[in-house]
Structures are given as C-alpha cells and as structure tokens.
Amino acid sequence: MKYLIKIISAFFLVLTLLTAVGCASTTKHEGTGEYVDDSVITAKVKAQLFDEPDLRSGQINVETFKGVVQLSGFVGSQANINRAVEIARSVSGVKSVKNAMRLR
C-alpha cells in the first residue's frame, strides 16, 4: 500500500512540474504572467496616447512583448512621433520602446 502511495505521489509531482514548465516563457513565447503584464502595458500606453489631443491614437498601433513596446502606424509630424515615444516610455513596466511609426 505504501508503495502505491509513493507511485501516486511521484506521478502528481511530475505532473505539477510539467505543468509549471509548460507555463514558463522562452525567448520567442511569453509565459502566462508575462502575457497578462504585456496586455496591461499595452492598454496603459493606448490610454495615454488617446488622452493626447495632438495625436490620432487610432492610427498608432501598440504591441508589447516582454515589456518592449512597439509603436507603428502613420503620424503627421516628427514631433508627434517623438511625443508618442515619450508617452510610451513614461508608462510603468515598459522596458524599452521600438519606434516603427512613419510620416505621412
């Protein structure tokens, strides 16, 4: 009976470890927690851009991967690009900002 309990315990230990490894992140894939964090960062950046009256935030795309925010889209001036990058950098949790925005 004790032998059966040890086998069942070992099975659940292995199952737990495999589940934890399955949720871990790699260089190309985010873990579950990182995905949630990145979603929050993206929402915060979009909200800050939306609050800026000079920017057309609907034309700026925001994507976040492991804390790195990428801004893309078309804006009217270099000043708008600089302001959007500045806004993105000011959001907590942002590690860096990649600027892929273009002038119209």
Rank of each mutant, 00 (worst) to 15 (best):
M1V: 09
K2R: 13
Y3R: 15
Y3D: 13
L4N: 08
K6S: 13
K6D: 07
K6Q: 10
I7H: 03
I8H: 04
S9Q: 07
S9N: 11
A10S: 15
A10N: 12
F11R: 07
F12H: 07
L13G: 08
L13P: 11
L13N: 01
V14M: 11
L15V: 08
L17Q: 12
L18D: 05
A20R: 04
G22D: 05
C23M: 13
A24N: 09
A24K: 09
A24V: 09
A24M: 15
A24D: 05
S25I: 01
T26G: 14
T26E: 03
T26V: 06
T27I: 13
T27H: 11
K28L: 14
H29Q: 15
H29C: 09
H29K: 15
E30K: 15
T32V: 15
T32K: 08
T32L: 14
Y35T: 15
Y35R: 14
D37M: 10
D37F: 07
D38N: 14
V40N: 12
T42H: 07
T42A: 14
A43L: 08
K44I: 06
K44E: 12
V45F: 00
K46D: 07
Q48F: 04
Q48W: 02
Q48I: 02
Q48D: 14
Q48A: 15
D51N: 13
D51W: 09
D51S: 14
E52L: 01
E52C: 08
E52M: 03
E52I: 03
P53E: 07
P53M: 02
D54W: 00
R56S: 12
S57F: 10
I60Q: 01
I60R: 02
N61M: 04
V62L: 06
V62H: 04
E63F: 01
T64V: 12
T64G: 04
T64S: 13
T64P: 01
F65Y: 15
F65K: 11
F65P: 00
K66C: 04
K66M: 07
G67Y: 11
G67M: 09
V68Y: 03
V69H: 02
Q70H: 05
L71E: 01
G73I: 02
G73D: 02
F74D: 13
V75D: 02
V75N: 05
G76Y: 04
Q78H: 04
Q78L: 03
Q78T: 10
Q78D: 11
A79Q: 12
A79M: 01
A79I: 06
A79R: 08
A79Y: 04
N80C: 00
I81M: 12
I81W: 05
I81P: 06
R83P: 01
A84T: 02
A84K: 05
A84H: 05
V85C: 02
I87F: 01
I87M: 02
A88F: 01
R89M: 06
R89I: 00
R89K: 15
R89V: 00
V91C: 06
V91Q: 09
V91R: 08
S92Y: 11
V94H: 05
V94L: 04
K95C: 00
N99A: 02
M101Q: 02
